[in-house]
Design a protein around this nucleic acid. Structure first.
Lengths: 261, 261
DNA sequence: AGACTAAGTTTCAAATAGTGAAACCAAAGG
DNA sequence: CCTTTGGTTTCACTATTTGAAACTTAGTCT
C-alpha cells in the first residue's frame, strides 16, 4: 500500500521510497520493498539506485540491503539547527525542566503528525537523537491538540484528514466531532490537557507556541503520571508554561531578522 | 557555483538544492539561491516548490524564505538509529569515555568527508544533534586517516579526489603523496595519530572499526590537548581503543543478522 | 548434472514529466 | 506614475522517466 497523498513527479516518488526504507527500521532488500510498493520493478530499482548514488541510501554490497544513508544525518544536523525551534528553545526548556521537575516535550507539526524535536527527561540525561525525531499522533496528545487548536481552517482540515482516530485508551477522543469540540475548549482555556488519552496513567498540560501573527510554530508540554500528580496540580503550572512558550516565540522571531547592517 | 559531481536526473538536482539550503544555515530567499545556483529561475522555483510540498523544505509565508523541513528531522532520526553505528556503539563509547576521561569521537565516512555520528565530551554532557552530524575533513583528522587507510583502492581513489589538502596547521599533511605514505604507516601501526594536523594543540589517537570482511564501518578516537597529555601517553591507550572498536564491530555484525528462525 | 525458481539488472520504444526563455504580476521605491 | 526588484506562471520543446519484457546470476530440487 503506497498510501501517499500528494505526489509530485520523480522527486516525490524518490522521497516516498526513502520513507519506505525509513519505516522499515532496518536494512531492507530490494524484493521486500518491491512487495510493498506498487511501483514496477524497474522503476523502483532505478529510484533506489539514484538514491544510493546520492548518498541518501546506502547499499550494503555484502547483503544487498538498503539502509538510510549518512547524507541524511548531515542534512538533519542542519535541519535541526535551523528549521526547528529546538536550538532556540534549549535554554528555556532547561529552565522549565528545572522549575517543574517533570518531563518536558517540545514538538512541531509535520504533515498532521506530532514531531518531537526536543525533550527533557525528569530522570535521565538528554538523549537527543534517540528521543527527538520521533513522531506521534496529533489527535490524542497534548502537544498535538494544542497545535491543532490554533491552526488556520485549511491547514486544520488537511491535518484532520490525516488522523487515524485510533482509540488508544478509554479516554481517547476517537472521532472528528469530539476532537473539534475539544479544540474549541482548548482555545477558550488557552492550553490543552492530555487526560490519559494516548497512554494510561500519562497526563500532560500543553500550550501552543505562536508567532506574533498567530502562526503555530510548535507546542510545549509538561508531562507527568497520575501516580505522581493530578491534572489540577499540573494546571497550576499552566501560567509558567505559557510564559516560557511566549519567550520561546519571541526569541524565535527576533532571531529571524538578524540582518540590519 | 553548483560544484556537484554526479547528478542523476531531477532527483539529483532536488537534493542538490536541499544541500544548498542546508549550507546556508539559515532561512534563505529564493533570489539568494538563484544567485548561487546556475539553475534557471523557473527550474529552481519548481524544485523548491516540490521540496516544500514534500515537507523537505518549509516555506515561511511571512518572509518568503525557505528552510529545511521537519520531514528531514524525522528521516534523520531513522537514519541515525538504523544506518549509523551510533546506537550500537553507545554503551561502548560510555565505557571508553569513563576509562580514558578524554573526549571520544565516533565517525563514519561520507563522500570523502568525516561525519561525526556520536561524541562524548570530557567536560560537557551529551549534546547529540548539536554535535553529531557535523562533518570534517578526512585527510587531516585521526578518524579520517584511520578510515582512509583501510579503504579498498577504488573507494580510496574516489575519496582522495575529494580532499582539499588545505594546510590547516604547520603539521598538516598537505599533499596526496604525504598522505599516502602516512596511510601506509597507519596500516603498519594499526592506529592513526592526529599530531596537531587539523587544529594546533589538539592531538588524538584513532582506530578504524572494521567488519569481519575488512570493510570500513567507521572509526573511533580519543582526543586530547598537548597541554594535558602527550602522544605517547595517548598511544598507551591504543590497545584499549582497539579493543573497544573490535567490540563495536562485533556488536554491529551480530545485529545485522537477527533472523535465524 | 540438468532443469527449475527466485532475485536482481538491463533494454528500449513510448509517453510523461521536466525544462527554461520569456511574459507576467505585485509590491516597493523613486 | 513610471520603474525596478523579486517572485510566479506559461508554453512549446525535449530530455528524462517509464515499465513490460528479456536477460543474468545464483540457488534449489530431483
Amino acid at each position: 500500500m503506497g498510501a501517499e497523498g500528494h505526489q509530485d513527479g520523480t522527486v516525490g516518488k524518490a522521497l516516498d521510497v526513502l520513507d519506505m526504507v525509513a519505516r522499515h527500521g532496518r536494512p531492507v532488500r530490494f524484493s521486500d520493498l518491491l512487495a510493498q510498493s506498487d511501483y514496477p520493478k524497474a522503476t523502483l530499482f532505478r529510484l533506489l539506485q539514484t538514491l544510493a548514488n546520492q548518498g541518501m541510501l546506502s547499499l550494503d554490497p555484502d547483503t544487498g540491503t538498503y539502509s538510510l544513508g549518512v547524507r541524511l544525518v548531515r542534512l538533519a544536523h542542519a535541519a535541526w539547527a535551523q528549521s526547528s525551534l529546538a536550538p532556540i528553545a534549549r535554554p528555556y526548556l532547561d529552565d522549565l525542566a528545572a522549575k517543574t521537575g517533570e518531563t518536558i516535550h517540545l514538538a512541531q507539526m509535520d504533515l498532521g503528525q506530532v514531531l518531537y524535536v526536543d525533550k527533557r527527561n525528569a530522570a535521565k540525561p538528554v538523549e537527543m537523537f534517540a528521543q527527538a525525531g520521533k513522531v506521534g499522533p496529533a489527535y490524542c496528545t497534548g502537544v498535538g491538540k494544542a497545535m491543532l487548536a490554533y491552526l488556520p481552517p485549511d491547514v486544520l482540515a488537511d491535518a484532520l484528514a490525516r488522523q487515524s482516530f485510533h482509540r488508544h485508551t478509554p479516554h481517547t477522543l476517537a472521532s472528528r466531532e469530539a476532537l473539534l469540540a475539544e479544540l474549541q475548549a482548548i482555545r477558550a482555556r488557552g492550553h490543552a490537557w492530555d487526560q490519559e488519552e494516548h497512554e494510561a496513567g500519562i497526563i500532560c498540560c500543553a500550550v501552543p507556541i505562536l508567532s506574533r501573527q498567530g502562526r503555530v510554530m510548535g507546542a510545549l508540554s509538561v508531562t507527568s503520571t497520575t501516580a505522581r500528580t493530578t491534572l489540577d496540580a499540573l494546571g497550576a503550572q499552566a501560567p509558567t508554561i505559557k510564559d516560557i512558550a511566549a519567550r520561546i516565540a519571541a526569541a524565535a522571531e527576533s532571531w529571524r531578522f538578524p540582518e540590519q547592517a
